[in-house]
Amino acid sequence: MANLIIFLVLLVLGYVFGQMAERRHFKSIIERERQYKHIMCFNERTLPPQTISPEVALVAGNVVISIDYFKRIVAGLNNIFGGRVAAYESLIERARREAILRMKAEAETLGGQSIFNVKLETASIYKGSGQQVGSVEVYAYGTTLIKRT
């Protein structure tokens, strides 16, 4: 009985705080995406031939985001019935967009205008109880071009 109560409390806590955190995070992501709109990202390896840029630098951004308890249980149920696991889709989307934003923020502090050869790397770094992946790391890196005036 006590176990069931703990489980339900965790489920409700996970749902309430998880949804709140996710909504807040998406809001801040959208806001910052607008703020860094002027920094263009490309995944091309070659620069356009007319590019004149005296300086280049490697910029990177990483983030580790954890899933909440409620979504983990929902994802567990999805494992039985199959199909889309929407709980993890939004988690990974948040992580990717956040990592790209951090990379852009670093480029901005260096005075870069564009980022070339952007690579994204995803790794699950933490395994929770029952060997379920509880959190995901995304690392974004690229080369920024800095124009000196």
Partner: peptide, 9 residues
């Protein structure tokens, strides 16, 4: 803890 509430580690 974060695995319950979700969010960045």
């Amino acid at each position: 803890f974060k695995n319950i509430f979700g969010g960045e580690l």
